[in-house]
């Protein structure tokens, strides 16, 4: 009699492979073509790094470098701001017992996830126009800050859930003031969550196109809006080189956060 393995379904493995193929094929093709010698993006003309050189020294390079710098500045500031705010919120949600606006606060923290991005974009544009803020790095930063809070909050709150308050009680029992109990015990224990929260918020800010495109104003570009503008003229090889570079950065980030998550588990 053939053993019936109830965990197995015929075809599921094939679908998984197809899924992985669909996920990776476009990225791989672009990565490969970014090393194409030929200026024609359809024909393979031999291996070359010339498009990478073009990214850093070519005629369009100042534009993209400026945009990349803007993206980085905004992502670092919005990411760290959102992380600070989310950390403080997570402490309140998990360490302040019951309080009046708890459910409302929870809904508020998650509001940016529930409002469709295009709605957030429209609302932000209207708001900044109404109060007379002209578009620029400042408006992008403020919009990103609000948008990134739930993404920073999720990993921090998940981490908080696994930190028993008996650690802080033990610290206070051992003569630590509440401030010391926070600094020496709770904060270090929260750190892996805070770090993942920052990474997530950072990537989300870096990734954003729609909101940025609405509030950026004329002349200010981030990397996604600059690439979008360029792609509208057709996909050129230098775009593929930039894409491949960003792919590399993303992979480094994910691996980093994965390793940190793992080391965080070990200390528990």
């Amino acid at each position: 009699m053939k053993q019936l393995d109830l965990r197995r379904f015929p075809g599921f493995f094939a679908i998984t492979l197809a899924c992985v193929f669909v996920l990776y094929a476009p990225l791989m093709v672009v990565a490969v073509y970014s090393f194409n010698e030929s200026t024609s993006i359809t024909r393979w003309g031999g291996f070359s790094l010339s498009w990478y050189a073009d990214v850093f020294t070519g005629p369009e390079s100042p534009k993209f470098q400026r945009a990349a710098l803007n993206s980085l500045i905004i992502a670092v500031l919005a990411g760290s701001g959102a992380t600070l705010i989310a950390t403080s919120a997570a402490v309140a949600m998990h360490r302040a017992g019951r309080f009046k606006a708890k459910t409302a606060s929870f809904a508020l923290i998650n509001l940016p996830l529930m409002v469709p991005e295009v709605v957030t974009a429209v609302a932000s544009l209207i708001f900044f126009t109404a109060i007379g803020f002209s578009g620029g790095i400042g408006t992008i930063l403020l919009a990103h800050l609000a948008f990134c809070i739930p993404f920073a909050y999720l990993p921090i709150a998940a981490r908080m859930q696994s930190i028993s308050d008996s650690y802080e009680q033990a610290a206070m029992d051992l003569y630590a003031t509440p401030k010391e109990a926070f600094r020496l015990i709770l904060l270090p224990l929260m750190m892996p969550g805070i770090f993942s929260g920052f990474l997530l918020a950072f990537i989300i800010s870096l990734d954003d196109f729609l909101i940025t495109n609405f509030v950026k104003g004329a002349g200010v570009e981030t990397l996604p809006t600059a690439i979008f503008g360029a792609v509208k003229q057709g996909i050129k090889p230098n775009i593929m080189a930039i894409s491949t570079l960003m792919l590399g950065v993303s992979v480094v980030f994910v691996t980093l956060s994965w390793l940190i998550g793992r080391s965080g588990q070990k200390t528990q």
Binding site: L23, L27, L206, I227, I239, L247
Partner: peptide, 16 residues
């Protein structure tokens, strides 16, 4: 792939 910029992913799909 989710961590790769959404725009880049969409452009890659278009290219492919």
């Amino acid at each position: 792939p989710y961590w790769v910029n959404l725009l880049i992913r969409t452009v890659s799909m278009k290219f492919l």
